[in-house]
Simulated scan of single mutants.
Amino acid sequence: MWYVYKYGADIYREYINRYCYMDGLLGMKYYSDIKSSCYYLLLSEQLKFINRMFGMRILLNTLSLLIDMVHSINLAVKVIIGSQEAAVKFCPAIGSLVRLLMCAVLLISIVWRSEKAYEQRSRLMCLIDNLLVNKKIDESIVEDIKDFHSLIQARPISFSMADFVRIDNSFLVSIVSAVVTYSIILSQSVN
């Protein structure tokens, strides 16, 4: 496992040194901004890789969590109402609610991490805007910063599940809505 990470890091370092070092090639004084653009391009390529490799897995896992959450709520409601017999009345209900809580924590953590990445992109955009508007900077670097700004704007960071659903706060609201809706439907059909 260590070899895979080391090999990947070596490949990225070689890519940066080969394609992102523009100082001698273009005679540019500020090649660190060009490297920032290359780092952002590498980040967007890694994001595409993550979405492609893990998107379907996250989609199927989320669907499984949704079904588990609805089933757990349904079981807990059945035990509490008394339509399902249990030797100890509240143990299955408590177990179901704990399982529901674990599923909810997993979904919230996925959405929270994705939102943190989106927040960092927004923060970077605001910092660049502030730099361009309020600071006196060298004219030779302004064009590079504008190019970096347009690159960030053109390639937004977006985690998705197999390019089907974007992982953000609205996705979490949709999951809660689906769980509540299906739980109400199943609880109304209790015999």
Rank of each mutant, 00 (worst) to 15 (best):
M69Y: 02
M53R: 11
L43N: 05
D68E: 08
L47Q: 12
L41I: 08
G55S: 01
Y39E: 02
Q46N: 14
R57W: 14
N74R: 11
L65S: 13
R52N: 14
Y39I: 07
R52K: 15
N61C: 08
F54K: 02
M56C: 09
K48I: 08
M69D: 00
L47R: 02
T62S: 11
T62P: 02
A76N: 03
M56N: 09
L75G: 05
L60I: 01
I50V: 15
T62H: 06
M69V: 00
E45F: 13
M53L: 12
L59D: 08
I50Q: 08
L42R: 02
L41S: 10
S44D: 05
A76H: 02
E45Y: 11
A76E: 02
S64T: 10
S44H: 12
S72L: 03
A76T: 02
R57P: 06
L60E: 13
I58P: 08
L60R: 09
L66R: 07
L65G: 06
M53T: 15
R57S: 13
S72R: 04
L41D: 04
T62C: 10
L43D: 11
K48P: 11
F54G: 06
I73T: 04
L43G: 12
N61M: 12
N61F: 06
L42G: 09
S44F: 04
S64K: 10
N61D: 15
T62W: 03
F49Q: 08
Y39M: 06
I73E: 12
L60T: 12
G55Q: 03
L65R: 09
L60A: 05
